[in-house]
Design a protein around this nucleic acid. Sequence first.
DNA 1: CGGTTTTGACCGGCGC
DNA 2: GCGCCGGTCAAAACCG
Length: 303
Amino acid sequence: MGTREVKIENVVGSSTFPDHVQSIYPLQGVLELCEGDKSSLGFMELLGMQEFGSSLFDILPVPSRAQESNPLDKKMESSELLNNQPATPISSSISSASSEALNEEQVKARDNEEIEQQKTKKELKPKKTNQKRPKEPKFAFMTKSEVDHLEDGYRWRKYGQKAVKNSPFPRSYYRCTASSCNVKKRIERSFTDPSVVVTTYEGQHIHPSPVMPRPSFIGAPPESGFSTTPFATPVQRSNFSLYQQHQQSYGNSLPHLGFGYNGTSSIVSSLGERRFCNALRSALAKDNGLLQDIVPSRMIKEE
DNA sequence: CGGTTTTGACCGGCGC
DNA sequence: GCGCCGGTCAAAACCG
């Protein structure tokens, strides 16, 4: 397949990458973020990287490349990321351990309860008020990581897990634990490479990150600009710091949202950068979504 | 004991 | 209308 691996040692700050984050992969899908802008985007790809030792996210555009001819690509274009890889024998986290310790009577009792529940559920469950709410902007990236749920500075509660069609890996659904904050994220393993985790964010945090920056950040220079935004997360902080470092070394050719690539300029073409930036701007113009939590606002403004 | 995870059921959208 | 599928709900289990 056409994914391109970026060696971790090419990333600034890579020395703090933990073992379970091994490398970075381009994102294969286009998200609803790009809705309305797809034509100009083509099948833009994002390159994501994370440094979990210090809660770092970077997002890089890469020049469009030929898509793998996948029968499900259409669906991906129309909505979002999709797992469609043939099953691989990697065990999912689906478990049934809860019933292991039950004796027969307990099982019976539980079963009876369940039957009762089933009988009454249909009657009692109130109909959902289903007014169509506007879709939140979505944003996703891929990370090569051994762990599924990656630290991003916010606290999340898992509210669901579903098997993904044609994929051996389940998709997990998380909601931000902050009250009245309805940001959600989905996490699933890539069907194309089980070592790759696809994370999709939806919505906008309305609160500061509850997780304080880790010690590795605290030394960040004050002029890095993080503290100027009350909603800055550790993610933004580290992003911004690295970004500034690289602005200095690469000049102010902004549009790329990532930085820290030494000798990987081929990955970030001007075209890719511009496309990516345009998409970001248009997405943000429509809705100040989660992107702002990930992408420093200054980067969006700049031309 | 409170917060989180697990997991089967439910619901709505969509294609046929 | 029906079935499939993705997303969500919510009770129970789990855990620190």
